[in-house]
Amino acid sequence: MMLNIKVILFVAFSMLILNACSQVRPWERGYLSKKEMSWDSDILESALNDHIFFSKEASSGGNNAAGGGCGCN
C-alpha cells in the first residue's frame, strides 16, 4: 500500500515537472536570438579556442547546437 502511494506520488510529481516543458515556437525566439543569450559571447575567442582544441585533440566541432535561434537553418 505504502509502495503504491509512493508510485502515485512519483508519477504525479513527474507530471508536475513535465508540465514546465514547453516547446518554444519559431516566432517566440526573439530573446533567444539576442547576443547575450549566445553560448560564446566572443566569436573570435571561441574560434581561437576551437583551434587550440583541434591542435591538441585532433578533433573539432560538437560544441554548438544547430540553428541560430530563428529556426531557419
Binding site: 515556437r25 530563428c70 529556426g71
Partner: peptide
C-alpha cells in the same frame, strides 16, 4: 503563425 503552423522563420 499558430494558425499557419509556421515551422521556421
Amino acid at each position: 503563425a499558430e494558425l499557419f503552423e509556421v515551422i521556421g522563420m
